[in-house]
């Protein structure tokens, strides 16, 4: 499989030129660590318009991977492929292969419902259910049958809220509506809600773009604490955020994956001039 991919890459001509150049530096690292996701030749079309162009990207287990790039570059489209959130979009078509622990997530026998229980998601705009805080967190475990009693459910809710660093702020008002919280608290509630179903991966699609700097700092701190236990993929517009929270960074531009590597390398010694242009603020 790996060999085939390499051959495919070399065959794909000009577009493979730049990622091809990074091949030697990525490949040894790939063999030394475990990969949670392996994306191979992923292309996404909205109707006839191509949004993603043969993306090959490995996402390390227990790492925080940041996807950066200017608006419309396809990073959100890519992250939504990882838990098949593009499925309900009528004219969206995904090609290529995305392996989660070696299993093709787009295979016919994969149930997207089960996939999303393993790969949780936090969205750009905090979107708690218009129900109580307790109900927000308990909903996932309940529909997945993770607990049989109210006591167990209470434990899960408490633990999830603690992990999301929200417990101290809401422990006295679990029956209040989730929508009554502040924006930053709502986003942490959404993270708690994702954690409650015990996922392996958490996808975050610009989780801080609707938040003020203080709330952003709390979320980033939280991402730091969660890394290691969870594989985290985060889409962000803020390069400082990517630099602060991620282990690996992938730079997208106009549907292409331009460059990927350890975050420190990307920000200090970018190989591609587009990456350099973006991170130094010349465009984007």
């Amino acid at each position: 499989m790996r060999n085939m991919t390499v051959i495919d890459r070399s065959r794909s001509g000009q577009t493979a030129d730049v990622p091809g150049g990074s091949e030697p530096s990525v490949a040894p690292a790939a063999s030394s660590k475990e990969h949670k996701f392996q994306a191979r030749k992923v292309a996404v079309y909205y109707g006839t318009k191509r949004a993603l162009n043969h993306i090959d990207l490995d996402i390390g287990k227990g790492e925080v991977t940041a996807l950066i790039g200017p608006s419309g570059c396809g990073k959100s489209t890519f992250i939504r492929c990882l838990n098949r959130m593009n499925d309900p979009i009528a004219n969206c078509r995904v090609e290529g292969q995305i392996l989660l622990d070696g299993m093709d997530v787009n295979a016919r026998e994969v149930d997207p419902v089960e996939l999303r229980a393993r790969v949780g998601m936090v969205f750009q705009k905090p979107n708690p259910f218009p129900k109580s805080i307790w109900e927000n967190v308990a909903y996932g475990p309940r529909i997945h049958g993770l607990s049989s009693t109210k006591v167990e459910l209470d434990e899960i809710v408490t633990l999830s809220l603690q992990r999301a660093a929200l417990w101290d702020e809401v422990k006295d008002r679990l029956q209040e509506s989730g929508t009554s919280l502040s924006g930053g608290q709502q986003q942490r509630l959404c993270i708690a809600r994702a954690l409650a179903v015990d996922p392996e991966v958490i996808l975050m699609d610009e989780p801080c773009s609707a938040l003020d700097p203080i709330a952003t700092a709390k979320i980033e701190e939280l991402i730091d604490e969660l890394s290691g236990n969870y594989t985290i993929v985060i889409v962000t517009h803020s390069m400082q955020q990517a630099a602060r929270v991620s282990d690996m960074t992938a730079f997208f531009h106009l549907g292409d994956l331009v460059e990927t590597g350890p975050t420190d390398n990307i920000f200090t010694t970018p190989r591609d001039e587009r990456t350099e242009g973006y991170i130094t603020g010349r465009f984007g």
Partner: peptide, 11 residues
């Protein structure tokens, strides 16, 4: 966003 939230945790 409500549909996405529900779908995102595996409803």
């Amino acid at each position: 966003s409500i549909r996405e939230a529900a779908m995102g945790i595996g409803s």
